[in-house]
Each structure stands twice: as structure tokens, then as C-alpha cells.
Amino acid sequence: MKIAFIINDHDTEKPNYTTPGLGYAAYKRGHDVYFIGVGELSYASKGHLSVRCKTISEKKFNSQETYFKAVQKEKFTRITSEDLDVLFLRNNPADEINERDWAQNAAFIFGEIAMRNGVIVLNHPNSLAGAVNKMYFQHFPEILRPKTIISRDHDEIKAFFKKQKQKMILKPLQGSGGTNVFMMDKKNEHNLNQTIDAIARDGYIIAQEYLTEASKGDTRLFLMNGEPLQVDGKYAIMQRVNSSDDIRSNIHAGGRPEAVKMTDKIMKLADIVRPKLVQDGMFLVGIDIVGDKLMEINVFSPGGLNVISEMYDADFCTPVIKAIEKKVYYKNMYSDYLFNSRLATL
């Protein structure tokens, strides 16, 4: 199998991230693995995807860190969609906001080209195009979601603030990783106008009810093919505990990962989101849970799989690669009969 991973940039991708872990798992299973930065995508005159990439072969490594550091030192080579079986879109568009705005939509736009060339593209690029901001989350059943409004109107947001007894979360519609996320209450109400203005510079504002359980952080669970990812009875799940003075629980925003047990409540939430994820061709997804509510669904590049693997002494990356191998097998068996959106979650 020839599999390529799209990342934001070779210089910013760290060797201990989830994507290098997935690449290393594929490499150990004998596959040809390529890494492509968003800026290395192009469209060839013959109508197919053409990219610069980095790859390595015929060497043994003791860890994903040594593997990916070796990949990063390699010179660029070129491949086309005609050479690939699978293209895995693992870049985070939110990381490009105000930095490289042109890069936000590039991966799924070029992913659509690769898909037309017969490459299996994960997650399904057409669905990713509709999920580039947090509005995608609002398409899931209301029972899952905290009370929310999305607006740029000061009066509407202030009215919601009062309705929530002067305690709410404000965050941008576009973005991830805990950037520009604020908890507003009576103590900082005098900064409400200023905070709304600051977030509104980048677009729409999400005003959301504050869940008291959020003080303990949130729970990140990985879903693969719409089902909780597990290995030998161990689930790919962790509690992300925020620091004492920060409401954000994202790991790279100061959150601390801890082991947590799967519960019937979490399983029920996962079951409710499954049908839409399957319908949309969302192969690998991270859902963030607080209490009995979903806070976010990360369909682009959910991170932490490497952390969870180490936490439970279990390899969660290899099952992901095995699932992709099966998709390649199905595609070869059925030729042009299976749409990418369906194949993505089989």
C-alpha cells in the first residue's frame, strides 16, 4: 500500500505527534509512506494531483521519533495521485488562521482531485469542506450539545449571557486548540464588550453555556469508522485536565492528560454521533466530552493518540492502519462501485 499523509508543514510537525505515529505504524507494516506539507500540493496539466513529499525506505528505526526525524532530513521527492492508494488529510486548518489563510482549504480541495483519480481520501474531503468551522458541530442532535448561539451581535450575546446567569464561554467559530477561548462571568463582565470585539475580528462568535463539570477538564475519545477505537479491551480515551488558572484543557494549551475509564454515558454519546460520522465519511475523529455533553468534534487532525498509547501501554496506531488496509482491499474488490464517502467508514 502507498499511503500519504498531509500535514501543515514539515518544519512544524513534531516527531511525537499522532500523524508521525500513524506513518510509523504503516512503515513498520511494510507500506510506502509519504508526508506532504500543505504548501507542496499542486495540480498537474494531465488533471491529477502532483506533490512534493518526503519519504524514507529500507531502514530500521527504534521509535516513531527517530523515524520521523530521519524523514524530515530527507530531500523532497515527487509523487502523483496515480502513484497513491490512500491520502490521509491530517493537517489542521485552524493552525493557518492569520498566518497562511490560503492553506486553510487547500488539503480537501486537492483531496477532491485525488479522489477523482481513484485514491481513497480520508477523511472524506467533501465533508471536511463543510466542517472547516465549528458550525459542523451544530448539525448533530441537540441533546448532545450545550446551549449555544452563534452571532456577531453584541446585544444578542449579552442577552444570552444574562440568560445563562452571567456565566458562559466565548470562542471563535473558526479555530481550535483553545485559541481565543474565554470564560465570562460576573467578575470579568466589564470586559465583555472588549472580548466580543477581539473574537469578532476573525468572524463569528460562539457563545455557549458553561458546564460546571468543565472545571475538571474534558474527555477526549477517538472514534474510528464511527466506533470507539479500542485495543484488547482498552479504549483510546483520556481525561484532559486543565491547569488551575486556565479553562482550556487542550494538551498543547496546558492541559494534563490522565487515564480515564469508559462509561455507559460516554458510550451512549458515541453511539448518537456515529450515524452522521459514518454518513459523512469521517474515518478517524476525536470527540471532546464534558459531563453528558459534547463540546467539540475534531474531524481534521485529532491529536493525543500517541499520548493515549503510552498511557495504556497499547498500540492504537496500528489498528488504524489495519483498517485502512481493509479499505484498500475493498476498493480493489469492488473497483468503481464504492463511493469514497462510504468506503471511508467501512
Rank of each mutant, 00 (worst) to 15 (best):
L277G: 10
N225F: 02
V51Y: 00
Q208M: 04
S42K: 04
S309E: 06
Y17N: 14
M224P: 01
D9K: 09
P20N: 04
I321C: 07
P275F: 13
E156H: 09
A344F: 12
N117P: 04
F110W: 03
F35A: 12
K46F: 06
K322C: 13
I169H: 03
M115I: 08
E74C: 15
F316D: 07
L284K: 08
A26H: 03
G47S: 07
L269G: 09
G281F: 12
E65W: 02
V231R: 01
G47L: 03
D288M: 10
D185Y: 01
Y312W: 11
E40S: 13
D271C: 15
G286P: 02
D336C: 01
Y43H: 07
S215A: 13
Y27L: 08
Q208D: 05
D218M: 00
T12W: 05
F110D: 04
E58C: 06
E156F: 07
L122G: 11
M115C: 08
I169T: 02
L269F: 03
G217L: 00
K162D: 12
S335C: 04
I97K: 00
V299G: 10
A214L: 15
C317K: 09
K187G: 00
R240P: 12
E310F: 04
D202L: 12
Y210W: 07
A344R: 01
I287F: 08
V86A: 04
E258K: 02
G118C: 01
K265W: 02
N105G: 09
I97A: 07
A44G: 09
F108S: 04
T12L: 13
A103K: 10
S50R: 14
D155L: 09
Q208F: 06
V328I: 14
E227F: 15
I196E: 07
M295A: 14
P146R: 05
D83S: 09
A323Q: 08
S249L: 08
G304D: 08
T179S: 10
A94T: 02
P20H: 10
M262A: 06
R52H: 09
F140P: 05
D245V: 10
P146N: 12
A198E: 09
F300I: 09
E258Y: 07
K331E: 02
D32E: 14
T55I: 12
I169C: 12
N98I: 15
E13Q: 10
I272K: 00
E213I: 15
Y24V: 12
S151P: 13
P257T: 05
D313F: 03
R201A: 13
K60V: 13
V285D: 03
G291I: 11
K162F: 13
E310N: 13
N180E: 14
V278P: 00
I251H: 03
A344P: 06
P275V: 15
H124P: 00
S42Y: 02
M295I: 15
E58Y: 11
L221E: 02
